[in-house]
Design a protein around this nucleic acid. Sequence first.
DNA 1: CTGGATCCCTCACGATACTG
DNA 2: CAGTATCGTGAGGGATCCAG
Lengths: 234, 234
Amino acid sequence: MAPRSYGQYCGVVRSLELVGERWALLVVRDLIVGPKRFTDLRQGLPKIPTNILSARLKELEETGVVQRRVLPRPASAVVYELTDYGRELEDIVVRLARWGGKALGEPGPDDTIARGAVIVGLKAAFVPEAAGDLEASYELHLDDVVVHMRVAGGAVEFGEGPLDDADLVIETDLSLRLLLFGQITAAEAIRTGAVKVTGKRVLLERFAEVFRMPSTGTGCAGLGARPPALSTER
Amino acid sequence: MAPRSYGQYCGVVRSLELVGERWALLVVRDLIVGPKRFTDLRQGLPKIPTNILSARLKELEETGVVQRRVLPRPASAVVYELTDYGRELEDIVVRLARWGGKALGEPGPDDTIARGAVIVGLKAAFVPEAAGDLEASYELHLDDVVVHMRVAGGAVEFGEGPLDDADLVIETDLSLRLLLFGQITAAEAIRTGAVKVTGKRVLLERFAEVFRMPSTGTGCAGLGARPPALSTER
DNA sequence: CTGGATCCCTCACGATACTG
DNA sequence: CAGTATCGTGAGGGATCCAG
């Protein structure tokens, strides 16, 4: 049952055999946030067929990346979580989010937004040096996805769902990307209605400094311009 | 022309759209070493069908990861090379090599060994802290793959092909992995014939310290115990 | 309602052959 | 040498169905 081997003794090849199948790394992405049930994963990956999700979970379990666990008594629900080995992928996934983020461009009309994507995306955007001694908690509503984070000591921790003592509550949608990519300022974001804030609104400026996606540098051209299509000649 | 979208606005998804197709990341891996011609890539990826290689190169070019370039006059050969954006993947690929390396286990009978895999694998194994003030040049023959590296100032540089002033020439095969994973010592490697050395043979010990793959830590169990093998059941 | 299994269809992938 | 052309196969996609 190794029908499609790459036939090379190489760590990259092994990685691709483990998490290179379609959807596999997105399952890992969503599990980085924490253990999830089958249905949670389905919801986070709206376009994945259930048989594929089944197959991927089985493969990831057999290869030691994911663990299947039956919750103790009252619930006795099945959850999937990363093994220690699987958790070592977090850094790589975050870097992929940062790299791919540079080429995101404008969202397509059918693009959805999932909780796992939000949290991993914000992890990718987090700039420790910019955090300094900031100490603040945020609650973020991105369409119907609600997450929260606490920034302290130059680090950040994420969680799902709301917070009851958030310093700032941010309600927004995908136009949050304009703020993250530095295409608008915090003030503009509020003024244009891209975000609505409740709480200590000066904290939105700090938010925009601390969560900042590398926009161009290298990578694809600034605004919605198509990624570099250079040589046409052959 | 976006036939299989994941339908999410997410950096990880974008990364997978760019380099997540089968073989794509291995093309990138081989191009990390330097520009390559079509035939070089074919040779480094013996099992890739030419039409697939064509397709991947075309896609990678269209998405701005790879550049196609026609060499100046006398040669007028076509080479493929990473764009600046594509080169930003190097760190990620090296980390994948390190992560997947932990689960490599024993080589299969059909596993080949390619130049790109060797160089990226050694990059993954390089431990800067262990290099200290070592200054040495190595020429490594792994089966019929010949690469070289110069260690200096706590860094290393790789190149393809031989070196005419190598401090140490190492001739070996896949059993080099035993040395990299710390399952045998440099002395044992020489004694058992796993490697043959020419030159300042004490430099092999330094080599074994400086190029060291993280074997267990977390990850799959210690010795050949249980490398997450591809299970056949079900 | 969760946690899948089963069916069928399609297209990307893979093997081989062939060309400028 | 650097690819294109052709064609078969099986993994992925989508809908539906089923057990606990």
